[in-house]
Nucleic acid binder design. Structure first.
Length: 807
DNA sequence: AGCACGCCGACT
DNA sequence: GTCGGCGTGCTC
């Protein structure tokens, strides 16, 4: 008999990070399973928890009873529970945090529970009261249903498929709300009457806006109004005061592109390269072998077709597939390729979906209505029970590492799952991370190489232009002579151009040209970001906002200027030197609105522009046949970021963006402008020589004792008081030195590159180790030791095993 | 996280 | 004598 349940409660603290036992009430015994969420009494309140185990006996005497289950079927199966433990172990997070991250966020939020009648034909079997409820509505509030039928009946019937239990998110705190101005009347006629009855006539500006609403009698945002009438905010509010309009907040919904028709595609004949690459994968699928394949294929070599045909094989075996793609390339173009091949068997999970939509996709997986999931990082937790393959596209992308708790890497989770399911993992990239390629070299991963493009197209030729020489020869424009000539040529030939301004790590900022002051956040040690729309300066770390100063706060000079991401400036310049060119600009300013990213790309794809100008966001995934020239305006800026991966990132970026040129019939050319042409990242990118880059960079990493030669762990110590932070950091470092192996290097304490965020000083200790069995224990000890200070003094200590950014 | 318990100073 | 400050410890 299952009498007692062990529950991980939703209280994320050190002391509660263990199971608590509860008695299962007799009438719930047959409805409760491991992996379900339950409501339990904890102290004097009711909280959520996950059942992780059943037992006969408990050491605790006065057990309380479970109050009610929250699910009809478990939300975490055995495997996911195991993965949760794996995560909490590997990343040192609380179990509850690990479980939560695996579920769609809708299950975490506050919710209302409803019942819908799935099998309409059986409505006669329902108890009278329920029958009546379902007669008037197709969804019934759970609490109402309980008035007419025993809870256990509802659960049983839900499990049998008569009902479905639906969660609807109640608190939409994390959904985006937008303020609308809404006419206060039912129709236009009343609207006009109401205006005529006003004691005083409207001001001209108010009248103008009023007429705008008469013409389009529906809710509008300030933004919408201001597209036609500038400075509308104040008069809009005046109209609110005068009773003609009211303010209402609506939820922002996204245009769903879901119900679109997809033209079915058939498997394409594979090239020799593809054939060679796919056969060991197919073999692993066939033989239920786990293992990691690193598919190193140059841009345009047809990795996606290899994925598609591997998945087909998996589906033929009746199994399921997970495909991870970086969020940024999760565009309709990408999704279409999977939908077109596998149709309704595909679920898509990405950040653009609302909570409800994400939940719906997740339910499709859970109910086994789909067999393939395409999604960003968290899709790795898709609750499939019969996985046949896991694919991680653009394996080197850092978005696979979650930067807040739990700080997991999707690749590690994928490998853990592949061992459980005995299925292969395929890591695909034209420029694999050094870590992965090194493992492939050592034979830990199987290396599969595709070094030729499909359609017998060659990789584009790359020309490096030394901008110092350009300057010397008197060319002060941002386009070198070579690039400019080629641009003219392409425009004449009606071919398309991609121009990338490499500004990784930069955003718009305000600087005084006289004294060089950059306006910084008063709470954080970081430059404020300029927002053109509102003419404000914002801090990306703490949300501080201020009006852009007109004179320098330091020297009172009025030569205070706004330095953009640079794309606007390039656009202006293009307008001067190539006035006939049609330009689409893609940067944070033009793509901040949801869906605008896709729209701009679609317009470019339809040939509505000659030049696509953008920041590194354009480097990935575009595949348009007419692009024959790629220009990189400044290759250097990502080289000088203080990060041991900056060379790798630069090489990847240059290679990726070069890969946009000449993917189909027309040959491609690339021009890279740089002030450091001799840098190896630039030189190896010129020759598309990943291998050489790899060897050189490995040497650098070895010298610097960085991954993949050493593992890293980064500890952040934050507090308002500098001295206190430093003393804690100092204690941590010396404790570690006493506990860890002598071959382990402990660096610091040192101030973090961003020394202050939200008025808290940040210090860090970096651990480099090859293997150190004592590390997890030592880290846990540190966390325990400073636990008291953490709650008492607002000290925070965070540990990132395998950090991606050292900021 | 929340809340009770408990031990010290200031008050009707 | 009592009220309330918050430091400490527990929650099945």
């Amino acid at each position: 008999m299952r009498r007692i349940a062990s529950v991980i409660v939703d209280v994320p603290t050190l002391q509660t990070n263990r199971p608590f036992d509860y008695i299962i009430p007799v009438d719930l015994i047959e409805h409760i399973e491991v992996g379900m969420r339950v409501v339990v009494p904890f102290g004097n309140r009711h909280i959520q928890g996950f059942i992780v185990d059943f037992k006969e006996q408990s050491d605790v005497k006065n057990l309380k009873e479970i109050i009610e289950p929250m699910d009809v079927t478990p939300v975490l199966n055995k495997e996911l529970l195991h993965l949760g433990d794996f995560l909490s172990e590997k990343t040192l997070c609380f179990k509850i945090a690990a479980y939560q991250v695996m579920l769609p966020p809708a299950l975490k939020a506050k919710y209302d529970k409803y019942l819908t009648l799935v099998q309409q034909e059986k409505s006669n079997e329902l108890p009278d009261g329920l029958k009546k409820l379902f007669f008037y509505q197709n969804r019934v509030n759970w609490k109402d249903a309980e008035k007419f039928a025993p809870t256990s009946y509802l659960y049983r019937k839900a499990r049998e498929g008569l009902f479905e239990v639906i969660y609807e998110v109640k608190s939409q705190g994390n959904k985006k709300k937008v303020l609308y101005y809404v006419p206060t009347t039912e129709n236009v006629t009343e609207f006009q009457t109401k205006k005529d009855q006003l004691p005083k006539p409207l001001s001209p500006k108010q009248e103008e806006i009023y007429q705008f609403f008469v013409n389009e009698f529906k809710p509008h945002t300030v933004k919408q109004v201001e597209e036609q009438i500038s400075n509308a905010r104040a008069p809009l509010n005046a109209l609110v005061d005068r009773g003609l309009l009211k303010k209402e907040e609506y939820e922002q919904y996204r245009d769903p592109y879901v119900n679109r028709e997809f033209e079915r595609t058939q498997p394409l004949p594979l090239t020799d390269d593809q054939q060679k690459a796919i056969s060991p994968i197919l073999q692993a699928i066939e033989e239920n072998q786990d293992g990691v394949f690193l598919l190193n294929g140059v841009t345009g070599s047809g990795k996606t077709e290899v994925y598609l045909q591997s998945i087909q094989e998996v589906l033929n075996k009746g199994k399921e597939a997970i495909v991870l793609v970086p969020e940024i390339s999760l565009t309709p173009q990408m999704v279409n390729r999977f939908k077109s091949r596998f149709g309704d068997l595909v679920a898509v999970l990405h950040s653009g979906l609302s909570l409800g939509e994400k939940y719906d996709e997740w339910r499709k997986i859970q109910r086994k209505e789909v067999k393939v999931v395409v999604g960003a990082r968290s899709a790795i937790f898709a609750p499939f029970e019969n996985l046949g393959i896991i694919i991680i596209d653009e394996e080197h992308e850092n978005s696979y590492k979650q930067e807040d708790v739990p700080r997991y890497h999707a690749r590690d989770v994928a490998i853990e799952r592949s061992k459980i399911h005995n299925c292969p993992v395929v890591l695909g990239s034209a420029t694999p991370s050094l870590e992965s390629f090194a493992r492939a070299q050592k034979g830990v991963y199987h290396l599969l190489t595709m070094d030729k493009r499909m359609n017998q197209v060659n990789l584009p030729t790359v020309e490096i232009v030394d901008m110092r020489e350009e300057l010397k020869s008197g060319n002060r424009s941002m386009f070198s002579e070579q690039l400019f000539e080629k641009m003219q040529d392409r425009i004449a030939k009606k071919e398309q151009i991609v121009l990338m301004l490499n500004r990784r790590g930069y955003s718009a900022f305000v600087m005084c040209r006289d004294c060089g002051l950059v306006v910084k956040c008063p709470n954080c040690d970081i430059s404020l970001t300029y927002h053109k729309v509102t003419d404000q300066l914002k801090c990306h770390y703490c949300g501080f906002e201020t009006i852009t100063p007109k004179v320098c706060p330091e020297c009172n000079s009025n030569h205070i200027r706004y330095f953009g991401t640079g794309t606007q400036k390039v656009e202006e310049e293009l307008g001067k030197v190539l006035p006939e060119a049609r330009v689409i600009r893609m940067d944070v300013d033009t793509t901040s609105r949801k869906g605008s990213h896709e729209k701009l790309l679609a317009a470019f794809g339809e040939g509505k522009a000659d030049i696509l100008l953008g920041t590194q966001m354009i480097a990935k995934g575009l595949d348009f046949p007419n692009i024959t020239l790629v220009g990189v305006l400044s290759a250097d800026s990502s080289l000088h970021i203080p990060d041991f991966r900056s060379s790798e990132k630069t090489f990847q970026l240059l290679t990726q963006v070069s890969g946009r040129a000449g993917r189909h019939k027309l040959p491609g050319e690339v021009v890279i402008q740089t002030y450091t042409p001799e840098h190896y990242s630039v030189q190896f990118a010129k020759n598309h020589d990943y291998l050489q880059f790899y060897q050189y960079e490995m040497m650098m990493r070895k010298r610097g004792q960085y991954p993949p030669f050493y593992y890293l762990t980064l500890i952040h110590i934050n507090h308002e008081n500098v001295q206190y932070v430093y003393s804690v950091a100092e204690k941590i470092a010396s404790f570690l030195r006493s506990q860890l192996s002598p071959t382990t290097h402990i660096l610091g304490p040192a101030a973090s590159p961003i020394v202050k965020i939200k008025n808290k000083y940040r210090y860090q200790v970096l651990i480099k180790y090859k293997q150190d069995p004592n590390l997890p224990t030592a880290l846990k000890k540190i966390i325990h030791h400073f636990h008291r200070d953490q709650i008492k003094h607002g000290l925070t200590i965070s540990v990132d095993m395998d950090p991606y950014s050292l900021m």
